[in-house]
Amino acid sequence: MSSRLLPHPLLTPALAGVWLLLNNSLHPGHIILGILLGWLIPLFTLRFWPETVTIHRPLLLLRFTLVVLHDIVLANLVVARRILGRPEKLRPTLVEVPLDLRGDLAISLLANTICLTPGTVSARLSGDRRTLLVHALDAADAAVVRAQIKARYEAPLKEVFEPC
């Protein structure tokens, strides 16, 4: 029953939060309107959200978010140093990363994370969704990049979204 009235329990608070941020106020009227919008929009756009998302380990997701934020700051410093250094010394490499993740959201989150973290940009998902092509700005060894992506970003995402 709750799934009919509230098809996406996570979308409702997220939309309400965005509404409050957009209005930049915590007025009770805005809170009520935000919750109303957060409830109505998922109901009317049900057909566009084929996948229901369940978060199995919220604390791990929080820890993953903190790790990613830390890595974003680190990534910026690393990339800034590479840009200011001599361009001839860069060793750009294309790396293929085999994926264990299956869900749409999990794969998109992984690809986004890869783009935001040190020296890597995800370039293409293969047709069978089994490998992700990643471009590394400065990598001596492709295996190191692959192992780091798998251990640091893919493993927590897999536990959060698709434990088995």
Binding site: I72, A75, N76, V79, A80, R82, I83, P87, E88, L90, P92, C115, L116, G119, V121, A123, H135, L137
Partner: peptide
């Protein structure tokens, strides 16, 4: 400054 498109991509997206 960087020399090919793929390395250029890294600057704007991160920094």
């Amino acid at each position: 400054r960087l020399r090919d498109f793929y390395t250029r991509l890294h600057g704007p997206t991160k920094a």
